[in-house]
Structure formats: C-alpha cells, structure tokens
Amino acid sequence: MQFQPADVVARASFRLPAADSAEAAVRTCRPLQDELRPLAVEARAAGPDEPGEGFTVEFLLKLPAPQSDDVEGVLRTAAAPLLARLGLDAGKLDVDVEDRDAIVWAGDEALSKGGTACGAYVVHLRIGRDPDEPHELLPEGSLTDEEARALTETLNSLFEQRPVEEH
C-alpha cells in the first residue's frame, strides 16, 4: 500500500486468546474496526514471540497528523488518541527520530494477560510508510557525488579480490 511522505501509518496488534479461528478473531474486532476504520485488517495464529495463545489481529491505520518537521512531535501527536483509546501508555512511546518510527508495548501486567482491555498489546508507527516494510538500506532520492564516491569505495573494499591463503 502506498502512502504520502507525511502520512503517519500505524499497525495496532490485538490478541484474541478466546478466538478459535482467524475469522472469529476478526469478527470479534468488528466494533473497533467500525470505530477506527483501518485500511486493512490481517489475522494470523499467534507466533512464538507474541504473548499468550490464540490469534492475533492487526489493523493497518493512517492517523491524522500535524504538518511539521518535528518528527517526534508528529509521531507523539498522531499516536496519542489511538493509544488512549487502546489503553496503551503514550508516555512509553519509544520514538526513533532517525528511522521516523515509534513503538509502544502494553505494560508487563497487561502483557501477562495478553494485552489491554481491548486486547491491544503493541502499536508501531512510521512516517511515510507501513511500519512492517523493511528499512531502506539507502537514503531516499539521489546520492550526492560525495555519498556516491563513499558508497563505491565501501563496495569495492567489500568485494575486492583477496589473495587465497595456502594451507
């Protein structure tokens, strides 16, 4: 899914330990879907690195956000209403300004129960793209001459032929 550079995109994950199928898990989240209007809803069996058992439902959301160059401010402002609704602590939002993303987990007590009252256990946000997309290895846009030269030198040093050691 394509997003504008200034969009704040979030993935909110919910645990549905009582659901006996992905379909049941998605149907259980219907009230929240109507309220939050996600762009997409995904469901899968809980993975080994996720709290509890059962199914996980994930909402992909585009959040209203202020127009600003202040990355941290934009992420915190955009996240606040969603986190309040889901019962997550906005004060624990961990912002990475360089990666233009942020993440917050439910507290230990909530995690031990699988999530907050509505089942939310983690929200991940990123400016300009889906938080699930892999990080770019190269910066967006064209490289400057200096950046291109540095990249070429680095690649050459990585791939240059090394003498074969004799055993």
Partner: peptide, 17 residues
C-alpha cells in the same frame, strides 16, 4: 504476504472446517 495470510487463514481454514 497479507493476501497470502488471508487466503490461508480465511479460505483454507474455512474449507478445512
């Protein structure tokens, strides 16, 4: 990946049920 997961957990889970 999202569509593939939906096919698996939607259609085939339902078909197996």
């Amino acid at each position: 990946e999202a569509d593939g997961t939906a096919v698996a957990t939607g259609f085939f889970e339902s078909l197996l049920n």
